[in-house]
Amino acid sequence: MLDLAARTETPKTAAEVVALVADAGAAGRRLEIVGGGTKRGIGAVAGADAVLSLAGLTKVIDYAPDELVLTAQAGVKLATLEKLVAAEGQMLPFEPPHLAKLLGAKGQPTLGGTLAANLSGPRRIRAGAARDHFLGLEAVTGRGELVKAGGRVVKNVTGYDLSKLMAGSWGTLAVLTEVTIKVLPAARSEVTILIFGLDDRRAGEAMTLALNAPVEVSGAAHLPRATAERAPLKGELAVTALRLEGFEASVVARADHLLSALRTFGPAELLDAGHSREFWAQVREVEAFHKDPRPLWRISVPPAVGWQAPQDLVGQALYDWGGGLVWLLSDSDPATVRRAVRALGGHATLYRGEGPAFEPLEGPLAALTARVKAAFDPTGVLNPGRLGPGRMGQG
């Protein structure tokens, strides 16, 4: 990873990005692509000759609240956009996590970086992932070519869906310069049902029941006792949380229905709207694990078996997405963690700690990703090694 103070290019336009990438390709140089720099430590770039920062691309190009569509340059900060849409009674529906404090970063996350990493918060189980709200893009490939895809409408079926391909590519295929996303009206009200003292298996059963009930749960998380005892919650028992959002009358009716359905799991309490928002912000930012120096894993598994992921591993867990996302603090050997997660049909990414961040790909999937990388960045100009061997980030 290069020092940000050493040789950083900060273009102000897409044309300047094209020139910088094209020149790098012609000269055989490689570039590390940076937005706010908050996720630079996840799959560190190896062998880059310079940093290409998107800090100069910070304009909101167009925002049409009536059409629920926003177009902005990739370097716009998430906090700026969240404030902008909140003023119109709207929200970024995928509830993007910032994670700067969790990762010990000093910068602020950007829209482009969030989409490139396909990061979504607790509302993903209801609203979908970041990629599901990524409508269009302007980007510069590793060939030094400016491409545009998608548009300002939700239903766009012309050509390939490059937006979804770019989401989760971590800047290894192209440099996002401008993106269009869908926004939604913010919930008028919300409430969170809390159930205390459930073990991980029983909590998984409660979350599964709630998510299958006709009540539109928009958040389902479980903090085992050892996690709930930590700051900022500082609880005495394990906590299982279920969020309902919408118009007040609807929220009240759905909460009553869900409370009745969950009565066999024990007594429940309700968090009002203000405390509910505070609680889910803590879950989204994984605040319980901010100050723990142990390696931190982000594990994605089928929700129904999520509670099983940490059972044979030493550490502490926080379950989100009804168990589909597990944050795990663990000193277990990386190979052991990945083997346990693969056995459950999932994958694990090391967000903090020593070792490869992303799980290596093998066989046909590795061959396919190599072909995709070759199509967009044949000489390996962009983020070399970011995703590790067998991935699109391999230089």
Rank of each mutant, 00 (worst) to 15 (best):
R342K: 15
A220C: 07
V45A: 12
L78S: 05
L198R: 11
A46K: 14
L350N: 02
K155M: 12
T158D: 00
P109W: 01
K12A: 13
T158H: 02
G323A: 05
G274F: 02
L70F: 07
E269S: 11
R277Q: 12
A100S: 11
G112I: 10
I61A: 13
T10W: 00
G323R: 11
A149D: 04
L211Y: 06
Q90S: 00
E32A: 14
T110N: 03
V154W: 11
P356S: 07
L296H: 06
I33G: 06
E205I: 05
D49V: 06
A86G: 06
L146R: 14
R294C: 00
S260I: 03
K373Y: 04
L233G: 02
V34H: 05
E216V: 09
N212P: 02
G37S: 10
E236V: 14
P109S: 08
D292R: 15
A127P: 00
V301E: 03
V381N: 08
D320I: 06
A46F: 10
R124A: 12
V147C: 10
L173K: 11
T192C: 13
V18F: 00
G219C: 10
L184T: 04
V21L: 10
P364W: 04
A231L: 14
V69I: 12
A130T: 07
A139L: 04
L223Y: 11
T180P: 11
V154Q: 05
T349K: 10
E285T: 02
L135D: 05
R123G: 03
A26F: 00
V215E: 09
L176K: 09
R243I: 01
L81M: 11
T172V: 07
A86S: 13
V286E: 04
T10N: 03
R152C: 01
G113T: 04
E9V: 12
L211F: 02
V337T: 13
G315N: 06
V239I: 15
A366H: 12
P356C: 08
P303K: 05
L103H: 08
R338W: 01
A340V: 00
G380N: 15
S169T: 04
K164V: 05
T71Q: 14
P293V: 00
L2T: 08
G36L: 08
